[in-house]
Write a protein that binds this DNA or RNA. Structure first.
Lengths: 231, 231
DNA sequence: CCAAAAGTGTTCACGGTACACCCATGC
DNA sequence: GCATGGGTGTACCGTGAACACTTTTGG
């Protein structure tokens, strides 16, 4: 039994580079799965797998993520397609890579999954990666760093309610450079995209900060008028 | 005869959206091929075809372009991968789309190719396109318009020697808005990326303009120092 | 001498950047 | 009362935007 074609066909897979922000450790994390089988048994890889019939690439990416990590709600965007022959020793495989942003708080420990080793790693010192996943990670990071500056995707990494300091720390972690507090607040509040929730942090050992949420609706409205988000 | 696999596999193709700049007509053009066979016989499509074993996606794109249009030297960049089931009525086909920039002067008539209808069309009024190529064209245009502003790829569309007015017209055509002549010159010359060839236009019925060429080497040097090109 | 495009400076407004202190809260 | 982060305003500078006339060349 099998499927026969006149010409050879490469396999098509999707891979997801899932980013999460660890505010406590002030670190950007990536979600990886440890491979049980060869090739690259023991090394870590992005969640992903074969594209099935009758599903779009994005559906495929979401399905694999759900199956392998239980993650469902996320920001997902196509990154790049890698198809060098030799990138998979088992045969020509073209992989469509996606990158995803999730709220780490929604998907914390994960390690004790169904016998599968799934874990978050610092993007700055990841374990040894299978296939060409180190190259994919590098490209995903570059894309995230570029995109976070001109699209309000950073909010996808934060809890729904966040403080201005958390938002600033997010940008500092992703962009790997310090930002001036007063200028940051002036700029971000000036855009009018944050809704003051009239609610403050609880259980902090210092003055409690104001909580905000991102005004998605207003953002769409402003974009329609030609507004450009920029940090 | 044939190739048999345990699971069904989508076909993998590449498609190239080739842009050329028609300075005489002040128009941005795209290179299309008329389909002889069904599906979509008679409609126009981007050059492209199946990815073969043992070639990278980019090699594949270049090979198809060479075979179908004779074009070889060009700027080529991956655009996006389209894989919706149903985008090809013959079966699930994933296509990795590239976009390319060529110097139109090097590839002018083309129409009288080996019985194949190949022609340049204005991007603003293309003919009816096969498959989901209208969607791909739209995305390629958006990418070009965005990228031309922060990467010096526009030069790929101009002859090696060009005048400042031609360069300005290029940006005006691609961005679809007028630019101020004095500000444009101030900015572009201020970057120090143009080499004055100490040579002027010939055979023009008005004051001959100075010719320049893009200083690729200096651009790479500046980028290494953290320079960002921007129009 | 006329048509056509080349070439050239200045002013103004705005946004980015630099920078330091007081405030509220919990322990 | 002290440690910890929260919250605030102003001055300067550089860049982007607006804007009009003179020069050169060929026909």
């Amino acid at each position: 039994m099998g499927y026969t074609y006149q010409y050879p066909r490469p396999s098509v897979t999707v891979d997801c580079v899932v980013f999460g922000l660890d505010l406590a450790a002030e670190d950007l994390k990536v979600l990886l799965i440890q491979r049980k089988k060869d090739p690259f048994a023991g090394l870590w890889a992005f969640p992903g797998g074969f594209v099935e019939e009758d599903e779009t690439l994005e559906e495929s990416a979401k399905r694999e993520l759900q199956e392998e990590t239980g993650i469902s709600r996320l920001y997902l965007e196509q990154l790049y397609t890698f198809g060098d022959p030799g990138r998979d020793p088992r045969g020509h495989t073209v992989t469509v890579a996606y990158y995803a942003l999730v709220k780490l708080s929604d998907h914390t420990p994960k390690a004790a999954d169904d016998a599968k080793a799934v874990d978050w790693f610092s993007v700055s010192k990841p374990p040894k990666l299978a296939f060409d996943h180190a190259k994919i990670l590098k490209m995903a990071l570059a894309r995230l760093r570029a995109k976070v500056r001109y699209q309000p995707i950073g909010f996808e990494l934060l809890p729904a309610k966040f403080t201005l300091s958390q938002l600033q720390r997010l940008y500092e972690i992703v962009l790997e450079r310090p930002l001036d507090k007063r200028n940051f607040r002036k700029k971000i509040l000036g855009m009018g995209l944050l809704i003051d929730l009239e609610e403050t942090q609880k259980d902090v050992a210092h003055r409690a900060a104001q909580l905000y949420r991102f005004d998605e609706e207003r953002y769409r409205g402003l974009v329609a008028e030609g507004f450009n988000f920029e940090i």
